[in-house]
């Protein structure tokens, strides 16, 4: 009963004819707006950038193919012991010198045979995933942060900042990634995964910086940025709340595609003997050591290279899918 009395006056106020002019004015459009929303119901659920991308991505078979490959790969990198019981470092020269693959021994130590040190090729391939994945992801992350930051400064502040940073970008663009990393890494006598990450980051940030600069310049002129400025928003707020969320799309696309490149560059560096060094386990190191026995035991080369190719392919597929999902020009 008390409930009823509270409801009645408000509902009368909403529909009553004896209202002031302004009251009627308000109610008319809001009723209409409500009906419009009802008519849109279900079609346009609220969504953010992430939800937007996910909606696009999940409809693509390419994304799922890449996704499955990458899940396997990342599991391999994180928990190699799930895939093999063998120790990749254990060498038995006497018994297993270039032992042939036993194709039926799935996931066994001798599944893909042995290398010239008598180490299990399968075990080394599984454990080698870690270096590739860490380097790929870390370089991409570092490059995105560094290049994204520099690009944002250049694009947003323009003028001297832009002139300075753009020339710097041009200079670094003149140095091939591989050559630059080669020269830099040579200075280190002891090289770990992190040295390689450093080398690739120093010479790999330019593309991200350029993409970010372009996206920021485009967004900087958007009306909603002007609107924020008119409200009195400072540079920090404008950059982080307005420009970055709208400019990050193309950067993510470029970063995903570039990730594959960093993995193969790491392998190349290790192959050339300037990246990771044995006893570190990496596909590049294994490919390098397999080149001498190519005629006698091609499997020693083929297995790690196949995994390398598959990984690069998976990231490229993912990058393509992400680009299709995020690139507004293709919509």
């Amino acid at each position: 009963m008390p409930d009823k009395t509270t409801v009645t006056p408000s509902s009368v106020a909403g529909a009553g004819p004896g209202q002031t002019g302004s009251g009627v004015d308000v109610s008319a459009p809001s009723v209409a707006a409500a009906s419009e929303l009802a008519s849109m119901g279900g079609v346009n659920k609220p969504r953010s950038l992430g939800q937007d991308a996910w909606r696009e991505l999940r409809a693509r078979p390419m994304f799922w193919t890449a996704g499955i490959l990458l899940v396997v790969l990342i599991l391999m990198a994180a928990f190699p012991f799930l895939f093999t019981g063998a120790d990749p470092g254990h060498a038995d020269l006497r018994n297993h010198y270039l032992g042939d693959p036993q194709w039926t021994h799935l996931f066994q130590e001798d599944w893909f045979g042995y290398n010239k040190q008598g180490q299990s090729v399968w075990a080394r391939t599984v454990y080698g995933a870690r270096a590739s994945v860490i380097i790929g992801i870390c370089v991409t992350f570092a490059v995105t942060v560094l290049g994204g930051f520099l690009g944002m400064i250049a694009g947003y502040f323009g003028g001297w900042w832009d002139a300075l940073l753009s020339r710097l970008t041009d200079i670094f663009f003149g140095i091939p990634l591989l050559l630059g990393a080669l020269v830099l890494l040579q200075a280190f006598t002891h090289r770990t995964v992190w040295t390689v990450v450093l080398g690739l980051t120093v010479f790999g940030w330019m593309q991200i910086a350029r993409v970010m600069r372009g996206a920021v310049i485009t967004q900087k002129q958007a009306d909603f940025v002007t609107a924020a400025r008119a409200l009195g928003a400072g540079n920090g707020r404008i950059l982080l709340k307005h420009i970055l969320p709208n400019a990050i799309g193309p950067v993510i696309v470029v970063a995903t595609i570039a990730l594959a490149g960093y993995i193969s560059t790491e392998a190349t560096l290790s192959y050339l003997g300037i990246g990771l060094q044995p006893p570190a386990i990496s596909w590049g190191v294994d490919i390098a050591s397999a080149k001498d026995v190519l005629r006698d035991a091609p499997h020693v080369l083929l297995v790690p290279s196949t995994f390398l190719s598959l990984t690069v392919l998976a990231f490229i597929l993912l990058g393509d899918a992400v680009r299709d999902a995020l690139d507004p020009k293709l919509r």
Binding site: D223, A227, L231, G232, A233, R237, H242
Partner: peptide, 25 residues
């Protein structure tokens, strides 16, 4: 502003857009 399609940040909710003046002031 003139263009209601470009003057609202597409990545912000309506509540955040209208509430932004209060964040700034």
């Amino acid at each position: 502003f003139q263009d209601p399609y470009t003057s609202l940040n597409p990545r912000m909710t309506v509540g955040d857009i209208i509430g932004e003046p209060f964040d700034i002031h």
